[in-house]
Design a protein around this nucleic acid. Sequence first.
DNA 1: CTGAAAGCGCTTACAG
DNA 2: CTGAAAGCGCTTACAG
Lengths: 347, 347
Amino acid sequence: MKNNVTMRDIAMKLGVSSVTVSKALGDKEGVSDELKAKIKQVAAEMNYRYNTAAKSMKEGLSYNIGVIIPERFTGLAQSFYLRIYQHISSLLDSYGYYGILNILNSEDEEQLNLPRIYSEKKVDGIIVIGQISKEYIEVIENMDLPKIFTDFYDEHADIDSVITDNFYGSYEITNYLIRNGHRDIAYVGNLHSTSSIQDRFLGYYKSLLEHDIPLNNNYIINDRDKRGKYIDIEIPTPLPSAFVCNCDQVAYLLTDKLKSMGYNVPADCSVVGFDNDIYATLTSPSLTTVEVDIEQMATTSVNSIMQKVTQPNKRFGRVLVQGKIVYRDSVRSLNENHGDKVQSIVV
Amino acid sequence: MKNNVTMRDIAMKLGVSSVTVSKALGDKEGVSDELKAKIKQVAAEMNYRYNTAAKSMKEGLSYNIGVIIPERFTGLAQSFYLRIYQHISSLLDSYGYYGILNILNSEDEEQLNLPRIYSEKKVDGIIVIGQISKEYIEVIENMDLPKIFTDFYDEHADIDSVITDNFYGSYEITNYLIRNGHRDIAYVGNLHSTSSIQDRFLGYYKSLLEHDIPLNNNYIINDRDKRGKYIDIEIPTPLPSAFVCNCDQVAYLLTDKLKSMGYNVPADCSVVGFDNDIYATLTSPSLTTVEVDIEQMATTSVNSIMQKVTQPNKRFGRVLVQGKIVYRDSVRSLNENHGDKVQSIVV
DNA sequence: CTGAAAGCGCTTACAG
DNA sequence: CTGAAAGCGCTTACAG
């Protein structure tokens, strides 16, 4: 780097000391306004650029936050985590921080390799987005750094995580179906696949319980195998009047399947999703679904990690981010007279 | 940072100098194998972590590459650039580098604000993904750093850019349609919106020229307004036998429109796209399209920037990344007897 | 094979 | 209001 202007260069040019330059550029006390202005001007003229590395070394801070995302969550149709990262990166900026993305490949996850961002002291804290193996959680936990888990959690009490309120969102949207006269409601999702799917199921179940609707095992429908790969969805007979899907993509696949079998959505049966991602509007009819608040997840994650950087002993526990129902065209009301907004739907 | 083990600590523990520790951990010459092993062992025991900041300061390198993406290219349906960034980030790892994402918001772009990654010497080079304003290109050009433009270019001769071979890809896929007997072929895209759309149009036009098919102005169909917002696509009469769309999403919208008008794709007319993104398989029938090689774009961008970091005077010019045609179900062959793979399509 | 010295560019007390 | 000194943690000549 030839063109390397330092504070010392500015100082020499003006016949002052580099301490004075440091104070002036940092807007500290102890320099006359006049001199301060002069120094700033000369700095600009000389195209001076502040050297963060020196500051980092002095203060023992990197001003970076590492964001770890397991590779398997970064497929073509999965931009959700990348999108959270994008917001995190922007939010960090207002703290004077930067986000360093670390895609965790399965090999490193399996062999429990420490991320380089950690072993090279590249970051002051870590945000992990997306479920990782128990063993790797352990690895992360042992790292001598503040950390936040986003969109998943672990039973360990002392881990802070930011998660969507899957349980409540699913509970609410099932309530909505029931308010609209549905009682034969199926749930679509592999209950043993992820904690999100499980929690969403439990919200659905709670709604059934509260309305004295018995849980029908034939109405719990698998959507994916152990590896998370989607399988053909089996439509139960008799046909339920509504399906609560664990995510929009599955709602999309289900709707396709129903249509191919000659059913009309929502005339013959209603379908709701979760996430409000691209599939929600791609599905025809467009999906009534629970919107996951990506920005809020990012905001909460960033605020939490930044607090932990300055106060390492701070604890947050499991922080829930509320979703909200987005009403579209995939639900039919079975009530005779109703004042609900679904009344516009042709029955 | 309480638990701050340095080389000096290891050195004291072993009664050697920190120089020796540095050599041992860095696998340099001049330390006996025995001592080297001992030092490494103690370092591990003490949970020593290398301090990159010190190295950075010594060498004047940050070991970061900044990746700038304009905010307007990061919408819900646009994960393309984020995805390139993801690959860039992974590829950088093999160079011992990290990628720092910088979403450029429109305000900073308009006011020509320098990115903080630059003014704080946070990065050794910059990759800009996605068209930015002329004025901001100027700002970037004046930065005293190696830079690469990805997925767009500027007329300035001295700027290195990595772009998809839009022209050739579009030329090839139009040739493919013509080989399959099509002669009434429309192009869908706003010619004045982006250089990609324009170049894709020119590839289409070249194919027509080579086959002595006159360009029909009614067959150049607008798809978006000045701001890039999609508009309703007007279907020309008589109906062309095929549509070359400037991207998959537009092919998706067009196909929907055609179906709503009662046309059958590809029986009544064929449709091809560009990108091979999520819309290609979401469209029914799935699209024959030109796949943009995201990984290769990322690889070329990373290799180029890394070379420029060590050799600042290196120039690459406009580097084209070849796409490849992905054959699916949206094209019908109009030939009587043909040995092409499209013959399996029911006519 | 091993280590004392100097320096990377900044900032924080502290002294004047 | 201004500046000399020391130090952040490492590495690169250089000397032994």
